[in-house]
Nucleic acid binder design. Structure first.
Length: 357
DNA sequence: AACAGTCTCAACCGCCTCGAG
DNA sequence: TCTCGAGGCGGTTGAGACTGT
């Protein structure tokens, strides 16, 4: 045993990396590959700790890292996974393609945590704060989310905020995808013994709800990719491009969500496409889709107690949605939510709504 | 324009796990 | 079986950017 420690030595540089250092590290890794971090600084001519090199590479220099704003879908995935797993940033990041744990962690600490607090939700427990009996409707200006300028815009302009969207009980048949016992139907990716998240909490109820709805959308997306959508249902030209270029549509990139099945898709298609949003509208945008999708959720979301429309949709209108990634995200998200081995399921246990706030 | 306060996020720190020896 | 180091992870820090006065 004669290993030398990783980070000992005089004259090791700390602080921000320079462009020159980045070039050296990239060049070395391109030539020799990752690994052996202890020796990389010396071999690459860097006065850095090997650990620092690994971090720099993993978080910022790797070619397949996605930078910039988090999409609406990514935000929701982070919130949901954090609710179930806590501060397991690497575990959460694994389900966000091309995002790093550090970036997810930072985004949570600087954006999402505050938003939850503004919503009156404890970011640790994901339950309503005890001091706020009505978290869904912050009453003071301080309670509003300053990070979402659209709230003010909407209230001033009179345009419909997600919270004020009219509830249309007949607008959508999504609820039909549940069986009479309220367990989500088996959609292929959802095996019959994986029907329910075991934990009885407002969070798990939300997870079940979203899984149910999202799996429906996922089916639609999956079906469309396989050309099984009925002829009258068309997406916008942009989305059609995505579907027609299936060779470029690499679900494998979305590793945790890569499996999909066409089983039962046909069963759900008629229901899914009966939704009010007009998929044949060439002006159809994802933001509009989410807004309309939210209509039927508004009433139920308020009843959940913890999460409400402000949280789930607070940034929809302001978030620039990458529609290419969106198609992957919806399918992946839905598959993930209903088929993640990290969760425990109890087939026989019905939801106990009494446990919900 | 200048200053103070706040926010963001890249990077560091220290602990933990796992595997090699 | 034990020791030790590499790699991984989550928490924290602090410099720079941003915002308000």
């Amino acid at each position: 045993m004669s290993r030398k420690p990783c980070c000992v030595g005089e004259g090791l540089k700390k602080g921000a990396w320079t462009t020159e250092e980045d070039k050296k590290l990239i060049s070395y890794i391109h030539e020799h590959g990752e690994g052996g971090w202890r020796d990389i600084p010396q071999k690459a001519g860097l006065k850095r700790c090997g650990k620092s090199c690994r971090l720099r590479w993993a978080n910022y220099l790797k070619p397949d890292i996605k930078r910039g704003e988090f999409s609406y879908e990514e935000e929701q995935i982070i919130i949901m996974l954090h609710a179930s797993r806590g501060n397991k940033w690497s575990a959460i990041a694994r389900h966000l393609p091309k995002r790093t744990d550090n970036e997810v962690k930072n985004y949570w600490n600087t954006h999402l945590k505050k938003r939850l607090l503004d919503q009156g939700i404890d970011p640790l427990t994901h339950k309503p704060l005890a001091s706020n009996p009505n978290p869904a409707t912050p009453t003071t200006s301080e309670g509003q989310d300053d990070s979402n300028p659209n709230l003010d815009e909407q209230s001033q302009s009179g345009s419909m905020s997600p919270k004020s969207l009219p509830i249309s009980s007949s607008s959508c048949s999504l609820q039909k995808i549940s069986n009479s016992d309220e367990t989500p139907r088996n959609n292929g990716s959802l095996s019959s013994n994986k029907c329910r998240f075991k934990k009885s909490s407002s969070t798990s109820k939300l997870l079940n709800k979203v899984a149910t709805k999202a799996s429906s959308i996922g089916n639609m997306v999956s079906a469309s990719m396989e050309g099984s959508l009925i002829r009258s249902t068309t997406f916008s030209p942009c989305l059609n491009d995505v579907f027609s270029e299936t060779s470029q549509f690499q679900m494998d990139e979305f590793a945790p969500f890569s499996h999909s099945s066409d089983q039962h898709i046909t069963d759900h298609m008629n229901e899914d496409i009966n939704m009010d949003f007009d998929l044949s509208n060439s002006e159809f945008s994802f933001s509009q889709f989410i807004e309309q999708f939210s209509n039927i959720e508004a009433e139920e979301a308020n009843a959940i107690g913890g999460y409400n429309q402000d949280l789930l949709l607070s940034d929809v209108s302001s978030t620039s949605v990458d529609e290419d990634n969106m198609m992957q995200n919806i399918t992946g998200w839905s598959n993930y939510l209903v088929d993640d081995s990290d969760f425990s399921y109890d087939t026989n246990q019905d939801f106990d709504d009494k446990n919900f706030i």
